[in-house]
Amino acid sequence: MKFVDSAKIYVKAGNGGNGCMSFRREKYVPKGGPDGGDGGRGGHVFLKAHRQMSTLLDFRYRKHYEAQRGVHGQGAKKNGKMGKDIVIPVPCGTVVRNTETGNLIADLTEDGEELLVARGGKGGKGNPHFASSTHQAPRYAEPGGKGESLEIELELKLIADVGLVGFPNAGKSTLISAMSAAKPKIADYPFTTLVPNLGIVQYRNYNSFVMADIPGIIEGAAEGKGLGLQFLKHIERTQVLAVLVSADSEDIAGEYALLLKEMEKFDPQMLHKPRVLLITKMDIVPEGFSCPAFGDDVRVLQVSSITGLGLEELKDALWEKIEPSRDVSQECKTESE
C-alpha cells in the first residue's frame, strides 16, 4: 500500500430542508389553519479515527465530500427527514487544519475519536410557527439554513513508542525487522527506506511497544534536504528516541552530535525526549574499534541485528523509558473516566 501522509479535501454539510407553507383543506372545515411541516436538518460531516488505517491514500482519489440535504416539509404538518450524515474515516494520528486560516481544528489520536468538522444547516420552520392571534393565516415559511463548508488539510503523524533516527545505512530497517515482524526493504545503499515503517516489538509478560523507522536523515534535513523534513514529523509523537550510528563510522561522536542538531532545528522539544544511542553493525566492527565516551547522561548500547548482540538489553532499556509514560497515560485516562 502506498504511504501518503498529507491531503487536502473539501467538505460540505447538507443544507436544511425548507419549511412548508400550507393550510388545512378538508370538507366541512372552510377555514383550516396553517399546517406546513418543518424542513429536516442537513447532514453533518464527521471525521473518525481508525487504528486499522495507516495512510491518507484514499484522499488522493476523492477530494470532495458532501452530506445529504434535509428533506423539505410538507402539508398536514409533515416534517421533512434529516439528511444523512457523512463519517469520513482517517488514521489515528491525523492532524486537521483549516486550509484557509491554517488554524488547528483537531488532533485525532484515539481509535474511535470523532470530530464534527462541518455542521448541517437547520431545517426551516413551517408556517404554523408564524401564526399569532392577529395573524392567523401566515403565508410565510422559513427556508432551510446553509450547511457549513470548508477545505481542510489532513496531516498524518505516526503514533509510536520508539522512533529510530539515523543517517542512511545506519541499520534502522535491519533493526526493526530483527525486533518485530515488520518487513521493510533492506539493501546496502542509501535511502532504501522511502516511507516510515511501524513494527510491534513483543516484550516480556505479554507487553509490547511500537517502533517506527523513518527514512535516513542527512545534514540539512530540518531545512528540507533529502527526505528529512517530510518524515521528521513522524517521530514528534514518539515517547523515546533511539539514535543509531554505525560502528564503521569514521566519527561516531560527530554523527551523533549532527543528528541531535538536526532534530533540535526541526523541533527543540525533541531533545527533551528520553533517548538511547545505539552503535549498530557490531558484527562488522573494524579491528581496534573503541567506542567514544559520551558521559553518564547518555545510555550507549552496542548491538548487531544480524547476530542478535545486545537486542534483549536494548528491549529492556527501551521499556524502562517507555513504561513511566504508559503509567502516566493510564492514570490520566482513569481520572477522565
Rank of each mutant, 00 (worst) to 15 (best):
140 Y>W: 15
292 P>A: 09
122 K>E: 11
221 A>C: 08
33 G>Y: 02
121 G>E: 05
102 G>K: 03
193 T>M: 06
331 E>I: 09
298 V>W: 06
85 D>Y: 13
232 L>V: 06
67 A>H: 07
262 E>L: 10
77 K>R: 11
38 D>H: 15
41 R>I: 09
301 L>T: 02
75 G>E: 00
8 K>L: 10
142 E>T: 03
239 Q>M: 11
109 T>M: 15
318 L>H: 04
73 G>N: 03
37 G>C: 03
49 A>S: 05
325 S>C: 09
272 H>A: 12
218 I>R: 07
70 G>T: 09
35 D>C: 00
155 E>R: 13
101 T>K: 12
280 T>Y: 03
52 Q>R: 14
246 S>V: 02
305 S>F: 06
59 F>P: 00
271 L>V: 09
287 E>C: 11
45 V>G: 00
4 V>N: 03
63 K>Q: 14
81 K>H: 15
329 S>F: 14
256 Y>R: 01
239 Q>P: 07
212 A>G: 08
7 A>M: 11
164 L>T: 02
329 S>P: 08
27 K>H: 07
43 G>L: 08
51 R>D: 15
317 A>D: 08
241 L>K: 00
200 I>A: 14
12 K>Q: 13
193 T>D: 05
276 V>K: 06
267 D>A: 11
47 L>P: 01
168 P>A: 05
170 A>S: 10
223 E>M: 12
316 D>I: 15
79 N>M: 04
337 E>F: 15
116 L>S: 04
130 F>T: 01
170 A>P: 03
46 F>I: 05
